[in-house]
Design a protein around this nucleic acid. Structure first.
Lengths: 238, 238
DNA sequence: GCAGGGAAAGTCATCAGATGACTTCCGGGC
DNA sequence: GCCCGGAAGTCATCTGATGACTTTCCCTGC
């Protein structure tokens, strides 16, 4: 086993067994390296691996801390890599998204509060009012995020947010057919929001699934990946 | 921006823009470090991060290669960290699993081949025959993996395999109540397999969801995490 | 006694050089 | 034609030193 593996598994084991708990600071590099029997180089590489996976977080000058280890912490790590997938593989992701969006819509319909309904419709109004495709995309994201939030499963909400972020790289609304697509999309949103407002889980699930399927169809038809030099990772969704 | 970030994003950008394609070897450390303007230390840390995320794979003595970038490549990275989650967060994962297992069961029922059915029942027979809880757990995994495979979405199959692996750390069958649980579990499996054999998607989905829900209930009741020093990562599922 | 400033310690970040380990390839020997 | 050995290329690791940032604490001034 290589030194990096030794450090990686050793550190992971310390966390798995509870010797290092969520939020806790891990020992300094020199000390930990000696304990694990590796020098600082490989140890740092192992720490970076765990950081990329959302398990620890190094803070310059302060120390390295174990994350809170919530499901969304580790699932969020996918957002850095999912957008590297070729479009072909993305279609498989879409099938998953279809199923899960339908589920959260259904659950949101069952558990909705008046505030949720109000938020959803105000987001729809804003979407229909704006001309800026980027803003529309942002509002669309917040609309779906709000539904996922209402379903009361943060893990699932994070997973769907990751999947959606990948799709947003393709800004279909900027195409010539964009305006027509947006009208259709807006109509879908109204159907979904209405079903949720009516506490009708079946209708909400159906509308959500149809909406995702429609988006998938558009993406399949045109696929101009947008060149980007992020970070535009402003997660302004409430 | 730190040197590690510069190297990480630089490398990721090279892959995102297609300058480095799947399976391709990236430039040697010295060369790449010079191009990105960082020394070998931080560059290696950035490479390790991408390796942890399933994007690249360093091979000692040969070079570092971009992965095939299939969805399962990057999703598989979750398996290293999902088992670090506390049980409380795991319940949210179970809800997702319930929905997705139901979906794959339904799809498997629609697309099943005679070979699939044969495999499923032979796995059930083997499960009922064995006394070894570890072997039973392994067969259980293969049973569910076979159903996911039949649904023809490798990404989804990988995602479910990751979720299941987390649950298997809790070997509920070794409890005093184990034998009774296993009888119930075996019965569930027969219902699922029969629904799939009958090409009845609705019944298959219902049976799968009920089965996962049952497992979840057991886990919620007893939760003795099994200490382990893997790797037992033998993915023997066909 | 208290608030502010600044020094000092602790820790991660980075660079540089050297050496070892492993893979790959090629040519020589049989 | 096959096998073996060596050379080159590349990643893996160690060591030492320096810089950057954060945190703590003491000292100063009021």
């Amino acid at each position: 086993m290589s030194a990096v593996d030794k450090a990686f598994h050793g550190l992971r084991h310390m966390i798995a067994t509870g010797r290092l708990g969520p939020g806790e600071r891990i020992p300094p590099e020199a000390e930990l390296g000696e304990e694990l029997g590796v020098s600082r180089g490989p140890l740092r590489e192992a720490v970076r691996m765990l950081a990329a996976l959302g398990v620890v977080e190094p803070r310059h000058g302060s120390g390295t801390y174990v994350s809170q280890l919530r499901p969304e912490d580790v699932i969020g790590s996918l957002s850095l890599t999912l957008e590297l997938l070729p479009l072909s593989g993305l279609l498989e992701v879409y099938e998953i998204r279809r199923v899960l969006e339908a589920h959260v819509a259904s659950k949101a319909a069952a558990r909705r509060t008046p505030e949720t309904v109000k938020t959803l419709f105000s987001l729809i109004d804003a979407m229909e009012a704006t001309e800026d495709p980027t803003e529309a995309s942002e509002l669309d994201h917040r609309f779906h995020a709000e539904i996922a939030r209402a379903a009361e499963n943060p893990t699932l909400a994070t997973l769907l947010a990751v999947f959606r972020a990948r799709s947003r790289k393709y800004q279909v609304f900027t195409l010539p057919e964009g305006p027509e697509m947006r009208r259709k999309s807006d109509a879908d949103h109204r159907v979904m929001a209405t079903a949720i407002a009516d506490r009708d889980p079946g209708a909400a699930a159906g509308a959500a699934e149809a909406h995702v399927a429609q988006t998938e169809r558009w993406l399949r038809a045109f696929m101009p990946p947008v060149e980007e030099d992020e970070d535009t990772s402003g997660d302004t969704a409430g």
